[in-house]
C-alpha cells in the first residue's frame, strides 16, 4: 500500500506538486493521470526518495521509503527508461540490480524472457536499444526483485500495440494476485483500460479521484450534440425555449437532455440527422477538469 499525505513540492516560486493526498490499495491498479507538466513524475520521484518533498510525506506499507531495508524487493520502480548507462548491455544493467538486491543471476534470465528481450538483444549495449526495448528493460528492472508494489511512470511509452496489451495483462494479473500498482500516463485511454482507480492531477493539484463510476458522477454537465437539415431553425426553436445553443462543427451543442432536443425537433418538423449525448464520458471529464491546466487553452 502506498500512502501520500499532503505532499507539496515547490521549485522556486513554482509549486509543482500542491498538497496531494491519495492512497494506492493492494489488489488494485491505480492510474495517475494528468496533462504534461502536471506533477506526476515529481510525485513519483518523491515517493521513492529521489526528490525531497517540501511538505508532507509518503509511506510504503506504513514506512518511509528510506527505511525499507532492501527497497528493490518491496517496490519495483520505473521512472525513466532512458536513465541507463548507454555503455552497459541490457543484461549487465539487470545483473547490477540483481546483485544489489541479492538475487541469483537466473532471475535476470527470467526477467529478460518475461519482457521478450532475446539473448542477442540482451547482449547489445543500451545506447543501441530502441525506445521500446529500453522500456522493456526498465520494466524488467522494476519486476526483478519480485516486489509487491509497482511504481511505473508512463510504462507504455514506446511500446508497440502488442507490448501495450501484454503489459496491461501483466499489471492486471499483478494486482489480482494482491500487488499494488501505480502507473502514470497522460493518455486517458491507456489508463482507462487497466486502472481500477484513477487519480486526476492538473498543475500539481488533485482534480478528482475514484473509480470510473465515481468519476463520471462528477460530470453534472448535461449536453447534447445534434445535427439537422435545418440547424438555424432548430437553434431558433431551442433558444425560444430558453435553452442555450452554440454551433459546433456541422451541428449544434445544446445544454439539455437529448430527449428535449428531439421533442423540439418534432414540434417544429425539423429532420434530425444526428442526435447524441455530449457528456463524452471520461474523456470529456478529463478535458473539462484540466481545461484551465491544458496548454491548448479552452477545449469545452
Amino acid at each position: 500500500m502506498i500512502k501520500v499525505e499532503g505532499l507539496t513540492r515547490v521549485y522556486g516560486a513554482y509549486t509543482a506538486v500542491d498538497d496531494v493526498t491519495f492512497t494506492c490499495e493492494p489488489g488494485r491498479v491505480t492510474g495517475f493521470l494528468g496533462p504534461n507538466g502536471a506533477g506526476k513524475s515529481t510525485t513519483m520521484r518523491i515517493m521513492v526518495g529521489l526528490t525531497p518533498p517540501t511538505k508532507g510525506r509518503t509511506t510504503i506499507k506504513g514506512v518511509d521509503y528510506h527505511d525499507l531495508p532492501n527497497p528493490g524487493r518491496t517496490v519495483g520502480v520505473l521512472l525513466d527508461a532512458s536513465a541507463q548507462h548507454g555503455g552497459r548491455t541490457g543484461r549487465e544493467v539487470l545483473t547490477l540490480s540483481a546483485m544489489t538486491m541479492g538475487l541469483p543471476s537466473s532471475r535476470v534470465d527470467e526477467m529478460l524472457q518475461l519482457v521478450s528481450l532475446s539473448p542477442s538483444e540482451a547482449k547489445r549495449r543500451v545506447k543501441n536499444y530502441s525506445l521500446g526495448m529500453k522500456q522493456r528493460l526498465g520494466i524488467a528492472n522494476a519486476l526483478l526483485g519480485d516486489p509487491e508494489i509497482l511504481i511505473l511512470d508512463e510504462p507504455a511509452n514506446g511500446l508497440d500495440p502488442a507490448g501495450i496489451r501484454w503489459m496491461r495483462g501483466l499489471l492486471k494479473s499483478y494486482a489480482d494476485r494482491g500487488g499494488t500498482v501505480l502507473l502514470s500516463s497522460h493518455l486517458l485511454h491507456e489508463v482507462e483500460m487497466i486502472a481500477d482507480e484513477m487519480i486526476l492531477i492538473g498543475r500539481g493539484k488533485i482534480l478528482a479521484q475514484g473509480d470510473r463510476a465515481a468519476l463520471l458522477s462528477h460530470n453534472t454537465k448535461v449536453e447534447t450534440l445534434a445535427t439537422s437539415l435545418d440547424n438555424d431553425g432548430l437553434s431558433a426553436a431551442l433558444s425560444a425555449k430558453g435553452i442555450p445553443v452554440v454551433p459546433a462543427g456541422e451541428g449544434l451543442r445544446i445544454t439539455a437532455e437529448p430527449v428535449e432536443v428531439g421533442r423540439t425537433a418534432v414540434e417544429h418538423h425539423i429532420v434530425l440527422t444526428d442526435l447524441r449525448s455530449g457528456d463524452g464520458g471520461l474523456e470529456e471529464l478529463f478535458l473539462q477538469l484540466t481545461a484551465d491546466t491544458q496548454r491548448e487553452g479552452v477545449v469545452a
Binding site: R73, L114, S116, L143, W166, S173
Partner: peptide, 10 residues
C-alpha cells in the same frame, strides 16, 4: 510476447 508471469508478490 511471453505468456509467463512473475511469481506471486511476496
Amino acid at each position: 510476447t511471453a505468456t509467463q508471469t512473475p511469481a506471486a508478490p511476496r
